[in-house]
């Protein structure tokens, strides 16, 4: 962690991540044109999660930071994931 603030990421990496995020935003919009039935929300959440992961890993420097922060972030994602899964035990079986 002590060295993390001094890590310099080339602009090229940021631009690539930006391009990926814009592309995925386009996919998020495009996918709404397809009827995916019960997995519609799961696909939307998955795309949003991948985009968030890119932001966390590169823009927020999790990749270069103490491993503990990555573990915490993954733990939080898993927790929210399970909460959403349990909620859908109601909606999918109603």
């Amino acid at each position: 962690m002590e060295n993390s603030s001094h890590h310099i990421v080339p602009y090229r990496v940021y631009l690539i991540i930006l391009a990926i995020l814009i592309l995925m935003t386009g996919i998020s919009v495009a996918v709404t044109q397809i009827d995916l039935g019960v997995i519609t929300i799961a696909v939307a959440l998955l795309l949003a999660t991948v985009k968030s992961a890119f932001v966390l890993i590169y823009f927020m420097h999790l990749k270069f930071d103490n491993r503990m922060f990555s573990i915490m972030a993954v733990g939080v994602f898993l927790m929210i994931g399970v909460v959403i899964f349990v909620t859908f035990l109601d909606y999918l079986f109603r």
């Binding site: 999918l92 079986f93 109603r94």
Partner: peptide, 10 residues
């Protein structure tokens, strides 16, 4: 009015 599956799980 939740699903039976949700009642069981909770």
């Amino acid at each position: 009015g939740m699903s039976g599956t949700a009642l069981f799980a909770f």
